[in-house]
Design a protein around this nucleic acid. Structure first.
Lengths: 86, 86, 86, 86
DNA sequence: CTGCCATTTTACCGGC
DNA sequence: GCCGGTAAAATGGCAG
């Protein structure tokens, strides 16, 4: 079990380290929001904008994927070179 | 309003950048967990351990406040002089 | 659809009734706290005590699972026979 | 301090009892929702309805209070008898 | 695809 | 009375 225990310790510590960094970033985000509020911006509105932009990005990506797929299928666009090599 | 718009854009972009990094870390954590599972470890158990370790850490500082808490709870500020007489 | 509508109405009303009772209890708790404060007790300290008591209760059952957790985490299912050889 | 300690114990226990009942009701609500889902209803839609009905009720109450106030001010409605006594 | 868990959002409460 | 932090609720994402 020694090997397993060592592996486990490694896993635990790696995750804890990553979560710590994640928390730091979450705190950074809060700081930016606090600063924004201190400058008279509305926190809720900012969150709404972030959400919309994220949604837009997702939808854009999705639309591009669909369009790309159709264009390739119709021979209107060169398939990715890696596709050829594969 | 130009200044405000610039400020707003800056806020938005800073937060988006931080959230992107946060997402990268979340993905990293998932990768570690996947690797652990692939090596025969139980994901749920690992999560439980992480939770316990975090709690232990919190409790270390927490116990230091308990005595103070009880003293306050018992009304160090005399609630009512007549209580003593009762 | 009549049956479904009746069912839905019943569901809604049952939940509303339960939420109303829940709110009553929340108000009762507030009343007790107000009374406590009026008698010179510290509200925050009381809340801390309640939290500690709840946690103690949780931990009693929690400790029973820790050993099992670690055994699972250590991969009771042999991860890889070669680990033993290593 | 004996009196205070007894009072504190009483406060703690009353609150714990109330919170327990509150939790029971929360569980009951979850049960009703589960049952609803099992009967093919959409949980999110039900929550939306509950929210709308609550909002309506608040608005109605508010409107009634305003109307009542104005009507009393205009002498169009008998003031509350207790108002007179005060 | 369902239930579970993390994250997010919302409401509350005490402090200033 | 507003603001900050904290607990509850709601939402979304993921594993099984």
């Amino acid at each position: 079990m020694q090997v397993a225990a060592d592996q486990l310790r490694s896993i635990i510590e790696r995750i804890e380290r990553l979560e710590e960094e994640k928390k730091t970033l979450a705190d950074d985000i809060k700081d930016v929001m606090s600063e924004a509020k201190a400058n008279g911006f509305d926190a809720k509105a900012i969150k709404t904008i972030l959400k919309l932009r994220k949604k837009d990005e997702n939808e854009r990506t999705e639309e591009e994927m669909i369009l790309d797929t159709y264009m390739k299928a119709l021979g209107m666009r060169q398939p990715d070179l890696f596709d050829e090599a594969a």
